[in-house]
Write a protein that binds this DNA or RNA. Structure first.
Lengths: 193, 193
DNA sequence: CGCGACGTTGATTTGCCTCAACGATTGTGG
DNA sequence: CCACAATCGTTGAGGCAAATCAACGTCGCG
């Protein structure tokens, strides 16, 4: 099973020892996803923390008009989950979907809780992981309430230089909070200079 | 010293035992703040986790035009800090300021690290605390990219029914990402119905 | 092949901002 | 304790950023 990327990932935090690695490895489940395959549907409880080994997924909501709004992209070595639904075990308002064929490792709640209970390092590492995600999300909020669409677009490109070329512009538009048509105009105007 | 509210606060997570309580109490510093007093200035490193015992503070950035954009309000029993600056020990782009006279308890990084190192419960509790904050922040991002100003305003009122009446409308506008003038029109239109 | 996602363009509308002005508080220094 | 400045909330005129709607060409995929 493709668990090595996950163990390597933890090396950038407090590296796991043999036992912790073995415990994690034995609890994680590999899953291969086709493009457009759903990992979470609105109305279901989010049952997994999903770690992306290869490919790319998105976390998004759909408004009354049927328009998608993307909260997160997750490519290689990133986690994706509806944390609120996961912990409260309540119906999610969100979707998680593969936007490229993907290989993921999934951890269910009882297993995660087991790891938390027996190995303090998981509390520590996930605390740091989510702190980092929190800081990035705060930056995004600040951008959203203080910048124009054009600034948000260029900021997105420079913040995710590897990810952006893999995404259709419609998805980038749904992430920065504008319509695809308007993004097209931004790109045109930017190119003209 | 007014440390009791902090210990009580932790009861809603994994409650601290005597030793943990004593360790935390001995490391936290009480501070009284006047209205408008700054706890963090742009350009400085954020040196504290600040717990609000009484009063209200805000975390905000200022753009090139001099306009404030508010990332967080923190009233009683809430934490406020620039977590990114705090952990990286890098100059902050943000300000933290008391918007009411306040009493806070502050924890410096070496002390927090000491607690993390010796008592796993702090890792656990702060993990859960920040998970909750993360979920709320995701909801806010979704609102920002999918809703109108009017929807964001009413959503703010219903999400923070106790806090909102304590805030001037200018501050609410700076939080939901609109101008005070436009908020005034929203309120007028809402009242008309 | 044919359908559906994608990117683009243009015309029009609308949500929200800008700027200016005004009364009502609030607070603050003399 | 008064006078003056600063903050706050509001209104209105005008302008701009971004949405909406419709149409069209391209492309990849089933």
């Amino acid at each position: 099973m493709l668990v090595q990327p996950l163990l390597t990932y933890f090396d950038s935090y407090l590296a796991l020892n043999e036992e912790e690695s073995a415990q994690l490895s034995s609890r994680v489940v590999e899953r291969r996803l086709k493009r457009r395959q759903l990992v979470l549907q609105q109305g279901d409880v989010c049952r997994h923390y999903t770690f992306v080994v290869a490919g790319c997924l998105k976390l998004y909501g759909v408004d009354k008009k049927g328009t998608e709004h993307i909260l997160q992209f997750a490519a290689e070595s990133d986690w994706i989950s509806d944390i609120g639904s996961f912990h409260a075990e309540q119906a999610s308002q969100l979707y998680i979907e593969a936007i490229e064929p993907a290989v993921v490792l999934q951890l269910e709640k009882p297993d995660l809780i087991y790891l938390y209970r027996h190995y303090a390092k998981f509390d520590r590492n996930f605390r740091v992981i989510i702190e980092n995600k929190f800081v990035a999300l705060q930056q995004r909020v600040l951008q959203n309430i203080s910048s124009t669409a054009e600034e948000r677009y260029h900021s997105f490109l420079s913040q995710y230089p590897d990810l952006a070329p893999r995404l259709p512009n419609t998805q980038i538009a749904a992430y920065i909070g504008i319509t695809p048509e308007f993004l097209s105009k931004i790109r045109k105007d930017s190119a003209a200079r």
